[in-house]
Design a binder for these strands. Structure first.
Lengths: 372, 372
DNA sequence: CAATTTTTGGCAATCGCTTGTCATCCCTAT
DNA sequence: ATAGGGATGACAAGCGATTGCCAAAAATTG
């Protein structure tokens, strides 16, 4: 225990000399320090303070700040100056309460740690901020129930929703869409406005690529059963392979995580296929690892095509051939679609469907079919 | 153009048969569909409706819902039942307005697409949700100004802040900490309550590891100049290498992104070192790529140690030896520290510092020093 | 059984802002 | 010069909860 403390204090030393003494009486990795009080926010200036300082009525201040055209130019400047001087920030709560709008959009994703969604999130965040909206990020943990729940619980606190790769059933989705404005990403159009990443057409490219390399036995490695994207990719795969008279197989469903890759790889190998089209990159990367462990060479013995071109697809081993999607842009477009509904006055044609093009990015995980 | 449309419509077919007709008159990747109206949320039930249905006063409803002990058990059940029946959700806006609390915590991270922060975010999200708080995620884009700005703008809409790897100056941080409750992650203690990931002691482990492999010329590859973590790692590196009488060098600062890896790799190679301790995994992975391009073998010619053990560190090529951090846990602890300040009644000892242990994870990017 | 304490529940003010209504003022056009 | 009209700004009523204060009811005590 003593040596523990000493070791730890020597570590603390590296952070801050002043901590050494404290460090000696600390317990494990926790330490109570002299209480430096943590301020609670003092009284904040209100619209009334600003009005007073500017010598106008509060309503004038409100209009000057939210509806600038409604107020005299010079008066408005005076008000803005006063506001700045007082460091005034309107309370979004009060604002929302009386106006009925929250200026907030909730973005629901199935798994916050899946890199695919990072880019979506970044796209939505960017576009929302530009429009003066706040983004509320929700991780629904791949669960339709949690998704429905969040949708319910937050209906008062968000003006609209963006559902990325929703796991809801069509019924649930229809119901949700009737309750509040929402836009889906990668989900059947018609139920709600949707941004679709055109992976089916990328599947065609991927198949052509594999065929050109001599592959004839191709396996589809499926993702989550409740994923609409997965269904569409599978559908495209079936249609296109039939047209080309290829020998196909499929395995799955698998969770879209690298940890599912081992099972997926084993199953795919077992089918005798020489190439796999995999639901997404996460799964594909997991497969790559497993295949190496088993001594199955990629791409000499087995070619792998992923989907999404996420972070990591370029530096895994071997780098992954994948169907690249403009993910961040999809997030942005989804926000535009939602906002144009939320604020019809600013119009823009209210599209109900946006299709994002994709393309195949060939790296090292695909190669000529093995000569048997 | 016609062929464009045809190609596209054949793609649409894969999504939804009902879209084929629509598909034919679509423009490029956009399409306007018959307007299926997007509901605006109807009248929401208020606390008054619940009170009426339950046959009590609104204040009773309010108490029953927020302060259950204050109300008769059976009455409360009746109220809860009524609330459930009406599908009542309290308006967080109105609640916040009158109570002064928002039940929201803002989490500020420098780069939302940096995997290091994913885990932080997931940790905070998890813990906040468990406590009934909402997380507001903000990407400050590695900018101290944006960070300060967000802190200002959101002071009304969040009860507290968590600053992950803040880029603020000490002065800015001190000022911010005086204005609102906040907890920092990986930042100097003393200014504000902090969760520190103990990378300095991991640096010791890393150095011992490298020394045991025979390395004597070691280069520190630095991260952002405004990063406190970077400063501390550098400091630890200096102290420990001096004690061991190693030949050292340093390069940087570099942005903590894979794209900076090329410059970092070239610079590090130029110093003649046989091993690098790199600010973080992102940079290290970028270096790995560059080194391969240049035909410098890892670890035969050069050993690389990263930091953080982020997503990707295990499947890059070669898999990265790195100093692993309990990142998600750091996020969770930060939230606990913040909440125990926000709600002193629920107490818990208000720690001002939590130190998260780290350890070295050895993979394939480190090996014996080259015989010269 | 009366007196006292403890629960329980209702009233009404309040939070900070938006917004409908209306009075005022200044221009313009006749 | 004066009526008509458009800008501009003041007033006050909410928005939907919370909460301090107090009254009524119930439980406890002697």
């Amino acid at each position: 225990m003593t040596s523990d403390c000493q070791k730890l204090s020597s570590v603390l030393q590296l952070w801050d000399k002043s901590l050494i003494v404290e460090g000696q009486r600390q317990m494990r990795n926790t330490q109570t320090m002299p209480e430096l009080e943590l301020q609670s926010p003092g009284k904040q200036p209100t619209i009334r303070d600003v009005a007073e300082l500017a010598g106008v009525a509060t309503s004038t201040v409100s209009r000057a700040l939210t509806n600038p055209g409604r107020v005299n130019h010079v008066t408005r400047e005076r008000i803005e100056e006063a506001a700045a001087q007082l460091n005034y920030i309107p309370s979004s709560q009060a604002r929302g309460l009386s106006s009925g709008r929250t200026q907030t959009v909730a973005v629901l994703v199935p798994d916050i740690t899946n890199p695919f969604y990072f880019d979506i999130i970044r796209g939505t965040q960017h576009q929302l901020k530009a429009a003066g909206y706040t983004q509320l990020l929700v991780d629904t943990e791949e669960s339709a129930d949690m998704e429905a729940d969040a949708l319910q619980k937050m209906r008062r606190s968000a003006d609209g929703f963006i559902l990325a790769a929703s796991r809801l059933t069509d019924e649930q989705l229809t119901e949700a869409a009737a309750q509040q404005p929402l836009v889906t990403i990668n989900r059947a159009p018609a139920i709600a406005p949707t941004v679709v990443i055109d992976t089916p057409s990328a599947i065609i490219q991927a198949l052509e690529h594999l065929v050109s390399l001599g592959h004839t036995k191709i396996c589809f490695v499926g993702g989550p059963a409740t994923s609409w994207s997965n269904a569409k990719r599978w559908q495209a795969f079936q249609v296109e392979t039939k047209e080309r008279e290829l020998t196909t197989s499929s395995v799955g469903p698998f969770a879209p995580k690298t940890t599912s890759g081992a099972a997926a790889a084993d199953a795919a190998v077992h089918t005798g296929a020489t190439a796999c089209i995999v639901f997404n990159d996460l799964l594909a990367i997991g497969m790559l690892q497993r295949l190496r462990e088993r001594g199955i060479r990629v791409p000499e013995d087995m070619s792998i095509v992923g989907c999404d071109d996420i972070f990591g697809a370029d530096f895994c081993n071997p780098p992954l051939t994948t169907m690249a999607s403009p993910i961040e842009q999809a997030g942005r477009v989804a926000v535009s679609m939602l906002l144009s509904r939320l604020n019809p006055q600013y119009g823009g044609t209210s599209r109900r469907l946006a299709v994002m093009p994709t393309h195949l990015t060939v790296r090292a995980s695909t190669g000529a079919a093995p000569a048997h």
